[in-house]
């Protein structure tokens, strides 16, 4: 039984997402400041959790918005 292959935009063995890498993180935010859904990022659940964590850390430090301008 072959599993359905999901088109991943980021291989899981890439370097970990960092909250300081704002250029990368801001790509995964809507203009309103929401985090893109899994179906939009194409991430596996582990990578998506990592992305969520990194964005939330950046938001706490005032680097990324909670609500877009």
């Amino acid at each position: 039984m072959a599993r359905p292959v999901k088109k991943a935009t980021r291989p899981c063995d890439d370097p970990r997402l960092d909250y300081k890498d704002l250029e990368t993180l801001s790509k995964y935010l809507t203009p309103q400041g929401q985090i893109h859904a899994r179906r939009r990022t194409g991430y596996c659940s582990k990578c998506q959790r990592e992305l969520k964590q990194a964005i939330k850390r950046a938001r706490h430090m005032g680097l990324l918005p909670f609500v877009g301008s």
Binding site: R59, M61, G62, L63, L64, P65, F66, V67
Partner: peptide, 15 residues
């Protein structure tokens, strides 16, 4: 840099 939102009435900060 300038902050993404106002923190303690400030719009800029040093990291």
């Amino acid at each position: 840099r300038s902050l993404a939102y106002t923190i303690q009435k400030r719009n800029r900060g040093s990291y």
